[in-house]
Design a protein around this nucleic acid. Structure first.
Lengths: 340, 340
DNA sequence: TTGAAAGCGCTAACAA
DNA sequence: TTGTTAGCGCTTTCAA
């Protein structure tokens, strides 16, 4: 491995000068800089980032903790987060907790403030939330995709108005004439997605519909959505619409309905939340309430970096862009009502 | 930040002893160790991993380079890779190159051997491959999911017999009686997926079918598969089966066919390669040739670690588990032939 | 504009 | 069993 001092020797200067060429070029005479650069090129020198991190007290690495990257929602976030991190000169370390608090704790203890300059944590459940709070003194931690803008957590966060997302979904179904509505509520990878369902229920109530007829609480996956939907429809065959608190469940629900001989949206409408890429790729294409995932990721990265640079000045909560209804092919007018 | 020497002072020992407690416990007297552990707990000490990395000359970090994590194939690999890395005491840094050789080069130059102990590179195209070869002297680099076991690259790799995967797909279609077969060949994120198509073509030939009727070359995504399939079927409406070199294309193809009024598999059969999670979640569920993604990821991580520990002794190429046909609902007997 | 020197926090000989 | 010492490769004052 070629070290900085070898470069220095080769260029007949001292290590400090090489370092200056690398960092603040203006401090060194052009001819000298030229000599140094040439030495760097000749020797194929590459700075040791660990040494630099140690000397500087910062590693230019950000960590992103999430429960399970196999959930298609996360890769979209990761992609945008990694791009944003890269653009600002940071690396991104992806930490899967596998929904396991032990692993989450281990990561947080190991890397927060020692290996990563800052940590971004997604979709925390209560246990994870407390873990983060107790790990805050280790270094900056920011919660991304916080679902309750009305009640800021004890940590810096980027919030998204998921209640509003639920409300938009409800409004859409109401406008289509639906009155018998079922809910599939995901576990948000540990933390209940209750902002979404609360927002949905409240909007239904405001629209004069007392309450969704039935609800189920399930894990976030297509398969789970499928299964839950079958159960739900068996119990409540009269439902004409289903709201799912995320797109995976909604997609699973659509498949279940079709499998049971119910046409979507002709017999039953289905709406989700998030607008993952898959939503427009399935058939019928999914009507959903879009969360601007990439924008939220960028905002989260940028605020985490601010937090690292100036811990005090940054207000604790930022609100991401508002959710937006995206009407596709999985929702339609309520047949029962039209004819009844 | 609490440092090791503060702990040492607190426990009235020297830094070396604290270090020994942390690493080789047996070298220190139990009572002393007890005192040290207590000091660690009281002060909330956590080792600085950058300092450790510098002193040890290894960071316990692995980097995984891939083109675009939003492609659903990668998260499944990443999940398994991260688990395997974690189990062996390593962190995993995910590096998206966005299909951009510049970014790939930058990552490779920055982290190989300086920040990451080893680098895993997936699905390389030729440019990336050369980049890796030229970066090999920086530190261990291993190619994962190499598609040509018969021609080992100039780098250590874990190969999968994708030609065999293509052959299995061909055999399946032939056995179902198909003779008019179209191909959709993905770009493998830069590198052509030609092992798959070659294997497929060869097996067709061996089965007495001269060649697939038509083929198209497209980017790996559902949308691209959809579009390409529409074009293909317009040109060659007589096709009774479509082979896609990966599942995303196959899923897009199914949707395109259904959209064009062709029933799957009744009118046209579709088969893919990989068996991503989505394959069993779409309707009709996709027949495909499964690559054991998780197993390949584990093997890749384990060999990368071997390479780091004992660069010389590790043979250059390892072969992953053989592909397996998974029959689901997107393929069926050739109607035209049955009636013809 | 350049150099000398101290130090980031930890590890690992080696000595005691 | 514990302490002493010398780094790891880089940055960063401070002097020259």
């Amino acid at each position: 491995m070629v070290t900085l001092s070898e470069v220095a020797r080769h260029a007949r200067v001292t290590a400090a000068t090489v370092s200056n060429v690398l960092r603040n070029r203006e401090k060194v005479r052009p001819e000298t800089a030229e000599r140094v650069l040439q030495a760097i090129a000749e020797l194929g020198y590459r700075p040791n980032l660990n040494a630099r991190a140690l000397a500087q007290g910062r590693s230019s690495t950000l960590a992103l903790m999430l429960s399970n990257i196999a959930n298609p929602f996360y890769p979209e976030f990761v992609l945008a987060a990694e791009r944003a991190a890269r653009k600002s000169g940071h690396f991104l370390m992806v930490c899967n907790t596998d929904d396991d608090a032990q692993i989450g704790r281990a990561y947080l203890n190991q890397i927060a403030g020692t290996f990563a300059d800052g940590v971004l944590v997604m979709n925390t459940d209560i246990a994870m939330n407390e873990l983060c709070i107790s790990a805050m003194h280790n270094g900056p931690i920011l919660l991304a995709m916080w679902e309750h803008p009305e009640k800021p957590p004890a940590l810096p966060c980027v919030a998204v108005d998921f209640a509003q997302a639920g409300a938009l979904a409800a409004k859409h179904l109401l406008e289509l004439g639906h009155r018998k509505i079922g809910m599939l509520i995901g576990d948000g990878c540990g933390g209940l997605q209750d902002a979404r369902s609360d927002g949905f229920r409240a909007a239904l109530a405001a629209g004069g519909v007392a309450c969704a007829t039935a609800q189920m609480q399930v894990r976030d996956s297509i398969d789970a959505g499928h299964e839950a939907c079958v159960t739900l429809m068996k119990k409540h065959p009269q439902l004409t619409a289903i709201f799912a608190s995320n797109d995976l469940l909604a997609i699973g629900a659509i498949q279940a309905l079709i499998g049971m001989g119910r046409a979507v949206p002709h017999d039953v409408s289905v709406i989700g939340i998030t607008d993952i890429a898959l939503a427009h790729q399935v058939r019928p294409a999914l009507t959903t309430v879009a969360i601007q995932t990439a924008a939220v990721a960028e905002l989260s990265i940028s605020r985490l970096i601010q937090l690292i640079d100036a811990p005090v000045q940054v207000p604790s909560m930022a609100i991401g862009p508002p959710p937006e209804l995206v009407v596709r092919d999985s929702t339609g007018p309520c047949k029962a009502r039209a004819s009844g």
